[in-house]
Structures are given as structure tokens and as C-alpha cells.
Design a protein around this nucleic acid. Structure first.
Lengths: 364, 364
DNA sequence: GACGACCTTGTTTACGTAAACATTATCCTT
DNA sequence: AAGGATAATGTTTACGTAAACAAGGTCGTC
């Protein structure tokens, strides 16, 4: 209790000056964080005892514990996680690097990650990359390295990573989503190929001679995988493979593709690489007077909630974003707990086909 | 900070064997962290000199600086933000509490917040609340208090907060989005009332006798404001006010509302409280053979990217989510820098009407 | 040539927490 | 009742960083 060391005298005027312009605002001296030492002083115990109470250790007698708790309440004590992190060397925080939060899939995945991480006692730190240049990606990793995170989940078109010049800092636990870097990192992803196969097979089974395809942006690994599976599936069935049309995920690009497809007399079935582009297709076909599904069948990918209210309601491939998020968190937590890097490999989350009203047998 | 940050050059580290290497210390914890002391030892200087180099302070002679930088590179030094935070008393992190990340508006807002915060050197820590009970909200604030965040942005239906039992911990810088707590907190929000007025006036100006309305969930403040403004606008124009229909933001609920409205012979114009529900309306009217906009005009709210590809393309109220996010960050940063609590008040971000093809003069 | 101004680098210290170790109080056993 | 085991609490220290202060060195000026 003889805390008459110089530290005790600081509360009066905390080194007025320096750069940070805080300090004596009449309204609040609250910027002074309450530390364990403050609680200890009020409770008449050592700060170590406060620590024990705070962490629920046994070996603190009831009366003492009560005093400490009372002092905590009175002062409004909150543990300082910076000090805690410094002490323990970990932060209970997972960093998430991603390119585009506003996209349907990513926001769902992030939400699932955040929710599941929360149940495990981890918080999420978000670092967005506005433009996916190598510099920006590198900068994000640098920031993550400096930031207090125990692990990193990367959600993005990962070609940049694969280029080799951009590597994750060694010693950082990492799980990657939407990537083919499975040979080097632990990867979690929707089973894009299976999903695309489901879509194509569904259309072929309905009797369509072949299936046209509208891709996502070339830089997208997911788009590539879907396109690849589409092609393979057609080839396996011995069907002709029409030249794919290229979109950029937006409904607008789907509309443009749709206008082109509407002029193809042979085209009776289209598989769009996501639901937004499928929406564009529907509008284009509507504008050109081609009826869906009577004249042309359309299948999307993602199963966004709106898809059920498209005109007509869209047949699409359902992605389980929540499961992807969960497995990401599980993956990094396992790495953290085991202390090693994640074993490379790809963990595929299954998809399922949701049949609605945009598909039907061809009319001839 | 410095663009010539040595840390950026380190990725050349051989990753090859890293993954097998686990922790080479048997049973020991991974503690690989390179500290300033390590760098100092290698460079043959004091750790303070390393600190000066790392922070770009002047007063370090060229040769010494070079030695230090070389040592940093060799060891792969990264500053430890926990220690930094402990030292400075701040983390350069903004906490974001939100209820539903996957909703269109929120994900855009969060992305804008994260992006803008990044340019200011702040990272974002996300705490989602899966079910908005008072307990969960309180828990989130507690977690935030323990996490070392410098400020908090709250994005949610904020009625719970207003209930009084849930209050933000005093002394935390906070900005609230989508709330009417402007008398107590600093609030940033889209100008819901103006947006709704734009929508209603547009329809009245086209010649519609009155405008029907599909609301969002009752718990949503934004929905309430839009409904309120809709009602007021009609009353001011001396028009009759039809009973509003209640949705829950989902396209499905809009569809249900649309089926009901399709049977109202007087109904020639509908204002939906968001674009998703407007989509549901479009489908319902299509299913019932009521042509949009010939028979019924529809206006939405949000201007999601897909709205331009609805059938027909949707007239809607554009929200500037990026601006909302920017002002949130500006608000908390100002509080952090000035050290005070934010001045209560509401900062409204303007909207604008985007006229597309879902509105037209009434046919009779 | 001596003194001081200035420039560069080193040393001490504090930030808040908690493990490791040290000390005192308490109770049980023989 | 002495001895020792055990329980309760206190003291020291380290975590990584950087401000404050101290010390050594260089140079210019008179």
C-alpha cells in the first residue's frame, strides 16, 4: 500500500504539453483511464489482487474480493487491452483484408466471420482495399503486420497474391477465401465448380442443347472457376461450347450481355456467373421480347435474397456464406491455438441448386 | 507513415520452409516478435535510436540510420502496436457496432467508414449484434470498452438505445447513424424526410391523386421517418392518406404488399421504403397483370446498383452512403482530437431523386 | 585555446497488466 | 504446542515503445 512512488502523483497534471491536445477539459478528466493501481489504492489492496479478482482467479477471500469489486464499480474500471495484449502477446483480434465489402457475397461472409468470431471471443479488424493494386495489397499486409491482430483472413481476387511478389508475412496465421493459392495457404471457398456444374446439368437435363455463359471479371478467381466448370461440363456431355460473354458482376453488364444474347437465335439457356448479371439478362430479354423461361432459361449464382422476386423468380445456385465465414474463423483459430501455419489445402463448402421459375424445357 | 518504411521491403523472406517449421522451440510459445531492442543490438545502437529511425525523427546521422534500417530489414522488424497503444493511450482504431451488416445500406456505409478511416490512419473494429436485444447491445458496448478503441460508431435501429436503460458509456467518443438520439449524441444520417418528400412530390407532380406507401419494419427509425414524411407531404398537399402497408425491408414482404395493392383499384402510385420491397412490388404487379408504370407507378429508396435493371428500371431516391460514412469518421475524429464528447445534433446527408422508368403520369 | 551552442546518441522511466516469486497469516497434524 | 502445509496477499519484473533527460562529441567564435 505504500504507493508513495512518484507515479502516484501524476493524476494532478499529466505532463501538460507534448503534442496531444487533450487534458483538462472542464467537462471531463475522464480521459484518465482507470487502472488497476487506482482500483487497488481505493480498495486498499495490491494491484495484483485486483488483477486476480478481475481475472476470476481463485485464492481471493470473499471480503477482499467484495472490496475490490466495489472499488471497480465506483471507479468504472475497464481492463486495458493494450496492456493486456502487450503482456500476453496476443490481441484476440482477427484481421480481415478485403477488396469489396459492398458485394453481396463478401458482406455476408464478413458478417458471418464477425459473428462467429465474437462467439469465440475474438473481434474483427477490417482493412479494405479500394483499388487492388499490388502496392495497396502490400500496404494492407504491412498495416496488418503492425496492427494488433493474431491472424488474418484475406477475402479477395487473389491473383495478385499468386503473382509471387506479394507474399503474406511469414509467421502470420492466415486463411484465404476465394483463391487458388491452396498449395501455399489454407483456403476456404465455396465449391464454385460444383455450383457451376449443378447449374449447367440442370439446364441440360431440361433438354437444352447447350448452355451459354456470362462470366464475371477476368480477375476473379471465382468467375474463372465457374467458367471452367461450365466449359468442362458441356464438353463432358459432348455439347458445343458457345463463346462466353464477359461481364463484371454488375446488373448493367448482364444487361449488355443479354442484349447480345437476345439476338442469338440458338440461345435457349444462359448461365450467369452471379445473380446481378442474371437480373440484367432478364431485363434485356424482357426488353427484346424474349420470354423467360419460355424462350430462354436463365440460371444465376449466389442466391441473393432478392432473387426470389425477380421477374420471373430466378433459378440459381445457393452459396452458404455463413458456412464459409465459420470455417474461416475455425481455420485461423486452429492455427492460433496450434501455433503453426495452417496446412495448405482448400476447404470447399458445398452449394445447392435452387430451382425457381426462370428455367424450363426449351420450347422446340 | 514514411513511405520508405523498411518493413515494406521484407517480403523477400523465404516462405518455403516456414510452414513446416512450426515453433522450433519445444513446448515453447511462438514469441517470434522482433523488438526494437533486437534491432538495436544488431545495429549496435540504443533502442532509442531505433525508435527515432522508425518514426522518422531528425537528428539521426546518415550512417547510423543506414545501419538501423539494414538491421530492421534483416530481422524483419515491425512495430508493436500494443506497446505503442499502451504508450500513447490510443489505438488508432474506431469501433463499429452494427446490427445487420448484410443489408445494402449498412455494408456500403461500413465500407465507406473503413475506407475513409484508413486514409486517416485508423483501422476499424467490427462488433456485430446478431439479435438486437438490450443485453446484446449492452454487451457490445462492454466489449468495446474493453477493446482499445478510441471511438465508437453505432449503426443500428437505435430505439433500444433511446429506451434509457441502454446508454453509451460516458467518456467514449461516439457517433450514431440512423437514430433520433440527436438530442444526446452526435448523429449522422441520410435526410430520410427529404428523400421521402422527393419521392412523394415526384409522384404528385406527375398527376397522381395520392401515393400509397409500403413501410419498413416498425423498429426502424429510418422507416419511421420516411413514413412520417410521406404522410406529412400528402397532408400538406391536401390529399387523402391511404393506410400504409407494412413490410420488413425484404423483397418478399414487398411482394406480399404488392399483391394487396394490386387489388386496390384506386392505387396508381406507390412509394416503397426501400428498393428491395419495390422489387417485390414490381413482381406482384407483374403477376397480377398490372403494368408499371402504365397502371401503377413505383418509387423506391436507396438506389441500389441493381435498381437500374429492374423491370422496369426503378425510379428511386439515391442515398449517399459514402458521404454518411465519411461524416461519421470525421465526427469521431473531431471528438478524438478535441477530446470532448461530440456536440449533440443531427448531421443530415442530402438525397436526390433518380428518375427511371417505373413512374409515369396516371393513365386516367 | 577556452567556452558554449548545437548535434548526435545513450539512459532512465512510465504506460497497465499479470506471471513468477516472496511474504505473511491460518490452520491442521502429530 | 511446535512444525509444516496451505491459503491469502504483496513485491518484483517483463512485455515494447518513446518522452524526458543526460552525456558525449563537434564546431564556431572570441
Amino acid at each position: 500500500m505504500d504507493l508513495d512512488d512518484p507515479a502516484q502523483q501524476l493524476p494532478a497534471v499529466p505532463v501538460g504539453g507534448a503534442k496531444r491536445g487533450r487534458s483538462d477539459i472542464p467537462g471531463g478528466r475522464r480521459k484518465q483511464r482507470v487502472s488497476m493501481a487506482d482500483v487497488a489504492r481505493l480498495a486498499g489492496v495490491s494491484s495484483q489482487t485486483v488483477s486476480r479478482v478481475a481475472n476470476g482467479y481463485p485464492g481471493v477471500i470473499g471480503t477482499t474480493r467484495e472490496q475490490v469489486l466495489a472499488a471497480m464499480r465506483e471507479l468504472g474500471y475497464r481492463p486495458n487491452s493494450a496492456a493486456r495484449a502487450l503482456r500476453y502477446g496476443q490481441f484476440n483480434t482477427i484481421g480481415v483484408i478485403l477488396f469489396n465489402l459492398a458485394s453481396t457475397g463478401n458482406s455476408h461472409t464478413v458478417e458471418a466471420i464477425a459473428t462467429y468470431a465474437a462467439t469465440e471471443g475474438y473481434a474483427i479488424t477490417l482493412i479494405p482495399i479500394d483499388v487492388p493494386t499490388q502496392d495497396n495489397v502490400l500496404g494492407a499486409f504491412t498495416r496488418m503486420g503492425e496492427l494488433a491482430v493474431d491472424a488474418v483472413i484475406v477475402i479477395m481476387e487473389i491473383h495478385l497474391l499468386d503473382a509471387g511478389t506479394v507474399a503474406l508475412p511469414p509467421g502470420v496465421h492466415v486463411v484465404v477465401v476465394d483463391s487458388d493459392a491452396g498449395d501455399r495457404y489454407s483456403v476456404v471457398d465455396t465449391d464454385q465448380a460444383e455450383g457451376a456444374r449443378l447449374a449447367v446439368r440442370h439446364l441440360l437435363d431440361l433438354g437444352h442443347r447447350t448452355v451459354w455463359h456470362v462470366t464475371g471479371p477476368e480477375t476473379s478467381y471465382a468467375s474463372q472457376r465457374r467458367a471452367q466448370a461450365w466449359r468442362l461440363c458441356l464438353e463432358e456431355a459432348g455439347r458445343s461450347v458457345p463463346a462466353p460473354l464477359h461481364g463484371d458482376w454488375s446488373a448493367e453488364s448482364g444487361y449488355v450481355a443479354g442484349l447480345a444474347l437476345a439476338d442469338e437465335p440458338d440461345c435457349t439457356a444462359v448461365f450467369a456467373s452471379n445473380d446481378q448479371m442474371a437480373l440484367g439478362l432478364l431485363r434485356a430479354f424482357h426488353d427484346r421480347g424474349r420470354s423467360v423461361p419460355a424462350d430462354i432459361s436463365v440460371v444465376g449464382f449466389d442466391d441473393i435474397p432478392d432473387a426470389a422476386c425477380f421477374i420471373p423468380p430466378l433459378t440459381t445456385v445457393h452459396q452458404d456464406f455463413a458456412e464459409v465465414g465459420r470455417r474461416c474463423v475455425q481455420g485461423v483459430l486452429q492455427q492460433i491455438r496450434e501455433g503453426g501455419a495452417g496446412s495448405p489445402g482448400t476447404d470447399l463448402v458445398p452449394t445447392r441448386l435452387v430451382v425457381r421459375a426462370s428455367t424450363a424445357p426449351p420450347s422446340r
